[in-house]
Computed example of a mutant assay.
Amino acid sequence: MSRLGWIILAVVVVVAGAFLSMTSFGSTERRTSRVAVAASAPDAEPAPERPGQLVVPVAGVRPSAIADSWNDPRGGGSRGHHGTDIPAPGGTAVVAAAAGRVEKLFRSGLGGITVYIRSPDRRWIYYYAHLAGYTPGLAEGQAVRAGQSIAYVGDTGDAGEGNYHLHFGMQRMQPDQRWYQGEDVNPYPMLAAAAPTR
């Protein structure tokens, strides 16, 4: 083969190699969802080491950035706020504040897209509201660990368009009570305690 032939062959091999390195022969849908989840779900805080301590349920938010909004007026002053609002950009990963089992995936007028997770001892419900959507595959009955991605920050329900935040609530439960029957408890002290201790 002539020198020109070898040069042409080398160029063809290089171009073909470059093309193959940019091409995937697997499922595009699976690859895209992995990238989307990885991009929107940065690592969460480590799981708590002390009882009564929770993981901050919005990825990338520090305990010091959370304000206590318990009992602030809502509904034009007709009711108090029973939870802690954590502002974050829309689509930010929402993670489980504590281990448990998904008890209910629900959509309501006030909370919008919501998740209720019950603690393993059935004495607590952790409530996540105003979500943009759930992490792919999240289902009722599924066990989750503290810090596991479960959903995405949104503005659904009565949050108001563009008012992206997670409403995080807690209810003290009797083991036989249903997901909506608990007694509201201020989660702020347990979220503020999520700062690492040395």
Rank of each mutant, 00 (worst) to 15 (best):
residue 70 W to R: 00
residue 29 E to S: 03
residue 28 T to C: 10
residue 8 I to W: 14
residue 23 T to E: 00
residue 42 P to C: 11
residue 11 V to D: 07
residue 49 E to I: 14
residue 56 V to K: 05
residue 11 V to P: 11
residue 7 I to V: 15
residue 27 S to E: 13
residue 46 P to E: 06
residue 25 F to A: 10
residue 12 V to I: 04
residue 49 E to V: 11
residue 31 R to F: 08
residue 32 T to W: 11
residue 55 V to L: 07
residue 34 R to H: 08
residue 55 V to K: 03
residue 11 V to I: 10
residue 43 D to K: 08
residue 46 P to N: 05
residue 56 V to H: 03
residue 29 E to Q: 05
residue 9 L to A: 14
residue 23 T to V: 15
residue 27 S to M: 06
residue 38 A to D: 14
residue 69 S to H: 10
residue 19 F to H: 03
residue 65 A to I: 00
residue 45 E to D: 14
residue 60 G to W: 02
residue 41 A to R: 14
residue 8 I to Y: 10
residue 30 R to T: 15
residue 46 P to Q: 07
residue 51 P to N: 13
residue 10 A to D: 07
residue 7 I to K: 09
residue 69 S to V: 03
residue 45 E to K: 01
residue 54 L to V: 04
residue 10 A to R: 05
residue 49 E to R: 12
residue 46 P to K: 11
residue 56 V to P: 01
residue 23 T to K: 02
residue 29 E to C: 02
residue 50 R to K: 09
residue 65 A to Y: 00
residue 46 P to F: 14
residue 8 I to L: 15
residue 18 A to P: 01
residue 45 E to N: 01
residue 28 T to H: 13
residue 67 A to H: 01
residue 25 F to Y: 11
residue 35 V to N: 09
residue 69 S to T: 07
residue 43 D to E: 10
residue 26 G to V: 01
